[in-house]
Design a protein around this nucleic acid. Structure first.
Length: 374
RNA sequence: GUGGCUGUGGCGAAGUGGUUAACGCAGCGGAUUGUGAUUCCGCCAUCCGUGGGUUCAAGUCCCAUCAGCCACC
């Protein structure tokens, strides 16, 4: 392993373990993050429908932004003018940005990959541009995210061994280029493990990343259509070899159960659009399981969405009213539901940390396995 | 009372002789995993005001009847 730079020390402190589950603290430029943690997604500089004040009320510690989207709009000039994303959106806690790697996957029809980088046609106006690993790092340093991700290729599923290998190998060459392009020692950079559903490729990818050396490591390319068993298996393969003293981030995952399962295998960080997107589409996560607020059964329901939740939505409104707002297409409905779902996910992370601290994580896991599979 | 127009699912509305009666809204159910998401996918008229008739075949043509609307007495 290469020598660590000074900035790599003491970023992450592992406080305690309970089984494979880890309780830690991650110290970043804009603050401290208690792990395990869930990071709400704010792709274009806003966690949809919520303000920074809302997020602080919910005790959000770190949120996500996306390089691809922010590069297209508002663009580098605006982000530079406002001296970075924190100041622009008035969020003074940590931010993590994704590199645009996922958009290579999700906007597959609009791009072409070469060794140089990803050639995109903007989904907004068709403008063509090339996102190279160096540009991805450059943009993210202008954004000023506390943690930025290397540019990678998120391989689709299923993916045969040869394709997964060449894709992974290119992602590793890009990871090295990203590391070389990094200039700001105050900002963390995470490498991303790829290799599809092939354990040997995952191990190889991981060895190469650790050789390069990053402030943290992410597992990419999961939750792309594979079975839960596959996802868990690959997570375990990666966690087996990831440095114990550095943070581990499972990208894009997932459902509440996915998160608890991930923690049980040694993951520290998660992000997912699920609470916000599903909130806007009427599916809520509660301590009693999923609730589809559109359902007729809630029409005359006097109860709060989740009696065990202390968020503003649950403290104040009935299911009947929330259903009405949703069906009426009221903006306030989308907001109240998003607010609750984020509250649920953040409380879940808090409960996970507590369970680890109290050495009862196995029971906690069992409870959630029953809750979400009933 | 006379003349005209209209009668298709909760609503709006295609269809003017020939497959299982478009479509939109509303309703109901499901999906959603590094956000191209006020998105996506299902289901929802044994039946075309009613009764007869013509025809191999009628929501579509004919007759009668009922209802609504408009105009005129």
């Amino acid at each position: 392993m290469s020598l660590m730079t000074a900035s790599q020390f003491n970023r992450f402190k592992l406080l305690k373990t309970n089984g494979q589950a880890r309780r830690g603290v991650l110290t970043l430029k804009h603050g401290v993050v208690q792990t395990p943690i869930f990071m709400p997604v704010g792709t274009v500089g806003s966690v949809k429908t919520l303000t920074p004040a809302d997020l602080k009320d919910l005790d959000a510690q770190i949120i996500l932004g996306n390089t691809y989207h922010l590069f297209l709009r508002p663009g580098i000039e605006v982000l530079s003018h406002f001296k970075g994303l924190h100041n622009f959106i008035k969020w003074d806690r940590p931010i993590l940005t994704d590199s645009g790697g996922f958009q290579i996957f999700s906007l597959g029809k609009l791009n072409k990959l070469t060794e140089d980088g990803a050639h995109f046609a903007s989904h907004l106006d068709g403008t063509k541009f090339v996102l190279t690993p160096e540009l991805a790092v450059n943009i993210q340093e202008i954004i000023g995210s506390d943690i930025h991700m290397v540019l990678d290729e998120c391989t689709s599923y299923p993916c045969d061994l040869a394709t997964a290998r060449s894709s992974m190998e290119r992602s590793m060459r890009w990871a090295k280029r990203c590391r070389d392009a990094k200039t700001n020692p105050d900002l963390c950079q995470f490498g991303i493990v790829q290799g599809g559903m092939h354990p040997e490729l995952r191990r190889e990818s991981l060895r190469q990343l650790v050789e390069i050396g990053f402030e943290g490591y992410a597992i990419g390319g999961l939750s792309v259509g594979e079975s839960k068993e596959h996802m868990h298996e690959i997570t375990e393969v990666c966690c087996d070899l990831l440095p114990v003293d550095q943070p581990r981030y499972l990208m894009g995952v997932g459902t509440p159960l996915d998160i608890v399962e991930g923690v049980s295998r040694g993951i520290d960080m998660f992000d997912c659009v699920m609470p916000t997107r599903n909130g806007r589409n009427g599916t809520l996560f509660t301590s009693a399981g999923r609730v589809n607020i559109k359902n007729l059964q809630y029409r005359l329901d006097d109860a709060p969405l989740d009696a065990a939740c202390s968020c503003y939505t649950c403290r104040t409104f009935t299911r009947g009213y929330l259903r009405h707002l949703f069906l009426a297409g009221e903006i306030t409905g989308l907001r109240l539901l998003s607010l609750h779902n984020i509250a649920y996910y953040l409380q879940l992370a808090k409960d996970i940390r507590l369970a680890i601290e109290n050495d009862v994580f196995a029971d906690f896991l069992r409870h959630h396995q029953q809750l979400w599979t009933k």
